[in-house]
Structure formats: C-alpha cells, structure tokens
C-alpha cells in the first residue's frame, strides 16, 4: 500500500531526483574517519553561523563613522539578545580562523593535498585567505579606537609594497586616509564581496570533496 507520503515523495523524486541526490551526496562510502575529519565541516558550520549572525547584525548596524559605534553599543545594550548575536559573531570569527588553520594543518600532515586532490588544496588556500580577509575587514566595522588604529597600521603595511604600495593603500582605504569611505568599502567587502567569493569557493571545495571522496589516513604503505 502506498500512502500519501510515498506518493508525494515519488512525485517529487521523479522531478527533483531526490533519490539520486541522496545516494550521491549522503549515502556515500567513506574511509574510516576520526575527529580530525570533522574540522572541514566545522569550518563550514562556523561559516554558516557567521553568515546567520552577520545578517542579523546588519539589521541594526550602520556603517558610517557617526553611527557605527553607537549602533554597536545599541545592539550590545538595548536589543534583546544583541550581546549573544554579536558575541557569537565576534568569537566565531576567531574560532573560524583557528579551525580553518588546523584543518589546513591536518591536510598537510596527512598529505591529503596530493593526487588527485591538488585543486581541493588550491581552493582551500583561497578560502584561508578569504577567511583572513573577512577577519581584517570585520575588525574595522565597530569603529572603536583599537579597530581604527589597527586598520590604519594594517593598511599602512599593505602600502609598504614597493612601486604599487601607494596604489594598494588608496585602493584599500578609498583615499589617502582612513575615512567614511574606508568604513563603507570594508563593510561592502565584508558582507557582499568576500562572502560571495567564499560561497563560490566553498561550493567548489565541497564538489571536489564529494567527487574524490575524503582522503584516508595514510598507513605504512602510502
């Protein structure tokens, strides 16, 4: 007897290919893994958590020198659970850098970057850079003293590159000085440009992981 659910599922499956999705994405065989293998998905989890809390923060945050600090204080002191959302976003950023880094180290130690997973590694390096970029752009947004002056120094360092230094400095700051323009472009980079790139690279990374399967832990024969 086919009940209503089975009928519905069959109908959807015929059109969406749910069953083959399930087989290809979820019901895959994998080498026996251990807790070190969870770091990649932990990075993904942290990324999604940052996306969710980040979206919530933009509901109140205002990226202008006049209002940025006050709006953050408002989130922290006035909005229900604002301290929690910002706290998770703040600490999640630190933890994400840490987890991504350890994930990369694990890949290095088990030599999982070797044939046939070279491109997975390449994309992973891109993701590490984007994560650090997110940390750098996000650090300025609360517009407090530490953020302002650390970013002044940080962009100055980028400006020390020979020949193109001044160009890079102005491109980062949106002018010679740290100003409203800097805050605006860091905000745009932090919530639009870098996350869009990250989504794209994460998609590619996951596709490659599924395509080649997770690497096994090497033994004496490898």
């Amino acid at each position: 007897m086919r009940n209503a659910w089975q009928t519905l599922f069959a109908w959807l499956d015929e059109r969406l290919g749910l069953h083959s999705l399930y087989q290809n994405l979820l019901d895959r065989p994998e080498p026996r893994g251990n807790w070190w293998n969870t770091l990649g998905s932990a990075s993904l989890f942290l990324f999604l958590l940052q996306v969710a809390t980040g979206i919530f923060l933009t509901v109140y945050y205002n990226p202008s020198p006049d209002h940025a600090y006050d709006s953050i204080q408002y989130i922290m002191n006035e909005v229900a659970f604002g301290w929690l959302i910002r706290g998770i976003h703040h600490w999640g950023a630190s933890l994400m850098v840490l987890v991504v880094f350890i994930h990369m180290l694990r890949t290095f130690v088990t030599a999982s970057y070797k044939y046939p997973r070279e491109l997975t590694w390449l994309v992973g390096v891109g993701l590490l850079l984007l994560t650090l970029g997110m940390g750098f752009t996000g650090y300025l947004l609360p517009w407090h003293q530490m953020a302002y002056w650390a970013t002044t120094v940080g962009t100055q360092i980028a400006g020390s590159v020979p020949f193109v230094g001044e160009f890079i400095l102005k491109a980062l700051r949106g002018g010679p000085d740290l100003s409203a323009l800097t805050l605006q472009r860091f905000f745009a980079a932090h919530i639009w440009i870098l996350p869009a790139l990250m989504f794209a690279l994460i998609g590619l990374h996951l596709y490659l992981v599924i395509k080649h399967g997770e690497s096994h832990f090497p033994d004496k024969d490898d």
Binding site: F56, V59, A80, F81, I85
Partner: peptide, 15 residues
C-alpha cells in the same frame, strides 16, 4: 539555539 534568540533580537524594537 540561534533561531529563538534571533526572533527576540529582530522583534526587540516592537516589544
């Protein structure tokens, strides 16, 4: 854990 606080967070000004 993230959803319930988020509801309060988003609706705070109305409450």
């Amino acid at each position: 854990g993230i959803g319930l606080p988020a509801i309060g967070y988003l609706l705070a000004p109305a409450l």
